[in-house]
Computed example of a mutant assay.
Amino acid sequence: MTKGRPLPETRTTAPRSAPRVAVFGLGGTIAMTSTPGGGVAPALSADQVVAAVPGLAESGITVEVEDFRRVPGASLSFDDLAELTNAIHTRLAAGANGIVITQGTDTIEETAYLLDLAHTRPEPVVVTGAMRNPTLAGADGPANLLAAIHTAASQDTHGLGALVVFADEIHAAARVRKTHSTSTSTLVSPNGGPLGYIVEGRPRILNRPTGRTTIPITTEPRLVEVGLVTMVLGDTGMFLRAATSCDGLVVAGFGVGHVPDRVVDILTDLAAAMPVVLASRTGAGSVLAHTYAFPGSESDLLDRGLISAGFLDPLKARILLHRLLANGHDQASIRATFARAGGYTHTTPETGRADLLTQGSARA
């Protein structure tokens, strides 16, 4: 594993005053090559991945490369991301103008949001990858990486937190989702769309989020387990009953946040014992608050102490709950943070106080 090694000077024509971008390679499809037994696996170094990008030497950007991991996206862990967060901070403190992460797309929507929660500096942290590995015709990794480096080097992306750049689109980490198993246009932002696009090598930002939620990693985070249970037709609550050993739980409900009436009592007991967040399994739109009123409806569940995920999809909600519990936040803090991150905090003009609009009476 090579750390902190800049590209050889013969591979860049950037002047001394050029923007500096640090590229961390984590593996994934973008770094895969053929194996003797068939198929592909992450084996290319971050240097090799960067060296395969046409036009980078002419970009005027100084690139430093760190071969951080060589694993599939599915094998990344919270510990990996905590170590990466520290390494990012070190690079930025040393003067890097931006960061690029290359990794597998299997977990990109989760890792990017976890990095976004930890990132409190103005410089952009840009995550990218590929859907077609380098052995295939039309491999998309080089184009995605070049676009990501341009985005990380730009002053126009400062203050946006962690971003995902893919297929010349710039997405907010809190919004982006993987929506197709093989398409090179798999990454989309259902709630709000992309923040902008890469046009002729330059990031063009068309809209900016109204706010971000940041929760830096504590020096000694707690080891926690946060479950995710998706409601399905005929659900009897078997998997909910198995979640009693978790520290927290996300429930991906039907539609705007509904569950079968037969599991309501189980959820009531769970919400009395741990934070239980209610999200929508649809992956777009928001959990509602007071439209439906039947047992198992969103208003019923919120009244029973469940916490609304708002516009956060189930995967993002799990990442946020994990970070909050690992940092030792209590129920009140978790509820307030989800109201902000999920888009359901309203600031009252008369008091300047943030009021929670949709969290119900919270029996727990």
Rank of each mutant, 00 (worst) to 15 (best):
G141S: 08
E110C: 06
V164W: 10
H158T: 14
T182Y: 09
R132V: 05
M131K: 08
H171Q: 10
A147Y: 04
A137C: 04
A152D: 06
A139E: 08
G141N: 09
Q155I: 04
A139I: 04
N133L: 01
D79N: 01
A137I: 15
H158A: 13
S181G: 09
T111G: 00
G161Y: 08
R121K: 13
T184K: 06
E83S: 07
A87I: 07
D106M: 01
G129T: 01
G95M: 07
V126C: 07
P142D: 08
A82K: 00
A167M: 08
L145I: 14
F166S: 03
I149K: 06
G129P: 04
A139T: 15
L146H: 15
N144V: 05
Q155G: 15
R121N: 02
H171E: 07
G104I: 03
T182F: 12
A147G: 10
E123K: 02
I149H: 10
A152C: 07
G141R: 12
D106P: 00
I101H: 02
H119G: 11
L76T: 15
P134K: 03
A139H: 13
A153H: 03
P190D: 05
A93K: 05
L163N: 10
V165D: 12
S181I: 14
A173E: 10
L114G: 00
I170P: 09
H171D: 09
E169A: 15
S154Q: 10
A172G: 09
L117Q: 04
G95V: 08
M131V: 11
A148M: 06
K178G: 10
V127C: 15
A74R: 10
A74P: 02
A167V: 04
L146T: 06
P122K: 11
D168V: 06
A153I: 12
T151Y: 10
A118P: 00
D116T: 06
E169S: 14
V164M: 12
T105N: 05
A94M: 09
S183A: 14
A167W: 00
S77W: 11
